[in-house]
Write a protein that binds this DNA or RNA. Structure first.
Lengths: 209, 209
DNA sequence: GAGGGAATGGGACCAGGGTCCCGGTCACCC
DNA sequence: GGGTGACCGGGACCCTGGTCCCATTCCCTC
């Protein structure tokens, strides 16, 4: 099983290589630090699996995945990323990645995912699986504020970044009135008096950037 | 040299351990995956250096750093961060970290930083070094936002906890007008438009509870 | 003593934020 | 079919928040 590593963090590449080399039959045939390099190395080294970071300088993992899948449809690509957001998950899957693992997963789970992708299977980490299930069920699942609706959470997230009502309205293509109405509900559910307190609560819960 | 690793990413911990174990005299005595665990292990294992990630589930690296420095002022804490953004790095240093390295740094540089922190030195990147110098040269203004006056910082701190103008006025025995006037100055100095954005900035810098 | 900045307030003004109440559409479920 | 809830929006209303003036009192420094 030949593996190609593509990640712009030397430390992380080192960890992956150390992990993979413990496994009999696994061999790290190359390392790339950006998407361009990843595509070139994958085409020349013919690995069974490419472990691909999404965020890399220059050509990112998403674009590299698209190019590789275009030329080698059977190549297994395991996307490895920090971000857990819905957009990334589905963008990666649409691009043709066969697996999606968060960087926070345990070593054994990661190795199992690499092996599975090499065998042609598709795997997702448990965290992402939960995320997908939540996304599919759409219900007010296990978010930071489960009592909020989807829309209310979107608005709160923008609020947590200091956006004004008008900016939120523009960002979500809503009327100013709708934003204010939603926020009134959010404040009630969070049991806060105004937007400033809501920002405090939201950022305590890890929202915002 | 005894090292404790605190990061919620097993893969990254693995990479760091592999790196450190190449060095004679270095020993990874423990691994923690959140701030709570990091504090407990550091107090029981007595390492020379704690390599601390900032973003961890539950008690984050910032709070863990504060608690550790409180109990073991001489303990070297090396913060490991994704990005070099001013607010978080500065907050970490304010919490008592003796250095920080980006996750993207090369292995040798990372090892050098760990060794330096173990020796009691402090290591910072050029961007932070500039900021530190400015912070120190602006005298014992002590805290983020050196451009603010003492009173303005007090008010901003209350604001960062979601207090209204009236509440701030009562808390500080001031007129409502005075609070508003001070806040107008604070907003100008922080280059934000309103209190919500000020809350965001303040909490990014580690203010508030 | 003159100057400047920090701190404290007042007056006037008004835009944005927030509330309450109302209407409608759509999807889902009993 | 009827009910419920999310989502979208309007009207009217009030008040906090924020700004731009202004003044006063300290205190520190030149």
């Amino acid at each position: 099983m030949k593996v190609l590593l593509a990640d712009d963090h030397p430390l992380l590449r080192h960890g992956l290589r150390a992990l993979l080399e413990q496994v009999a039959g696994a061999e790290v045939v190359g390392e790339a630090s950006d998407g361009e390099e990843a595509v070139a190395l994958a085409l020349s080294l013919n690995p069974d699996v490419v472990v691909m970071d999404l965020v890399m300088p220059g050509v990112g993992g998403l674009e590299a995945t698209r190019r590789l899948v275009d030329q080698r449809p059977d190549l297994g690509i395991l996307v490895l990323t920090m971000s857990e957001d819905d957009a990334s998950v589905f963008a990666a899957l649409r691009a043709g990645a066969r697996g999606y693992v968060l960087k926070g997963t345990a070593g054994e789970d990661f190795l199992a995912a690499v092996a599975a992708v090499a065998r042609g299977e598709a795997v997702y980490g448990p965290a992402v699986a939960r995320r997908i299930r939540r996304f599919l069920t759409t219900g007010p699942g296990t978010g930071p504020f489960p009592e909020l609706t989807q829309r209310e959470r979107e608005i709160l997230d923008l609020l947590a970044n200091g956006k004004s009502n008008a900016e939120i309205a523009r960002a979500l293509f809503l009327s100013l009135k709708t934003v204010k109405n939603h926020l009134t509900n959010v404040f009630a559910k969070l049991q806060v008096a105004d937007r400033a307190q809501a920002v405090v609560r939201a950022r305590q819960a890890g929202l915002g950037s």
